[in-house]
Amino acid sequence: MMSSDLWYSLPLVVAISLVYAGTRHEAMGDIIRHAIRFALWSLVILSGIFALLYFVSENL
């Protein structure tokens, strides 16, 4: 159940990345490039937080 809940973050990351990048640039190419970078960084950071919390909860 927990792993299925994580899938809900993907559409949010996509939407946030595209809209945020859209407010930074005017050209669609720049928007897409910024959004991809932003999404990847978001996923890396979220994965790190998830791994940390998972590790902590495993040792409770």
């Binding site: 859209g22 407010t23 640039h25």
Partner: peptide, 15 residues
Amino acid sequence: LNFLVIYDAFAGPAD
């Protein structure tokens, strides 16, 4: 997110 969009419509892209 739409608050960001409102600002973009008002002032243009941040960059």
